[in-house]
Design a binder for these strands. Structure first.
Lengths: 73, 73
DNA sequence: CCACATTTGTCCGTATGTATC
DNA sequence: AGATACATACGGACAAATGTG
């Protein structure tokens, strides 16, 4: 097994982009498809990653639309 | 889709058992298989559930062994 | 309003790696 | 060596919401 799971890698990279300001509050995240292609992982890995980030309050999902970076003070 | 996802149902039920003292610190959780059969769900739903509980610090997983209820003061 | 495409959210079955007994 | 169990991953599928025409 990878020492670091795909879903952690993906979550960590998105987290980094948010903290670095590359992704700002209100910004849309790339779609699941794009993330899969970008990171070379499957849908479940992306799903796990965004689920964790959602539980952490960093992003919000909106069915039918997109996921957005949350404006947390 | 169900208003309440399977993985939330499973996580919520295990959480309840821990908080009710039916599962005590140090106790083993049923295996993934048992949980699948008990709740009538697939492995991913169980995996998501225990991943959430692990992130919440309620349980700990030990590869090759079992998952244990954490003794949190 | 209806049809369609897109996207999120969820689920399943299956498979592999690794750790323990 | 073998059985068992956790941890992870993939691909495929369908529901629900949204947007567009």
């Amino acid at each position: 097994m990878p020492r670091v799971p795909n879903y952690e890698r993906v979550a960590a990279d998105i987290r980094r982009q948010i903290e670095a300001g590359e992704l700002k509050p209100g910004d849309e995240l790339p779609s699941t498809r794009k993330l899969q292609e970008h990171y070379g992982v499957g849908n479940n890995a992306v799903y796990m990653a965004v689920t964790l980030l959602t539980r952490e309050g960093l992003i919000e999902g909106h069915q039918g639309k997109a996921r957005y970076v949350v404006d947390r003070s």
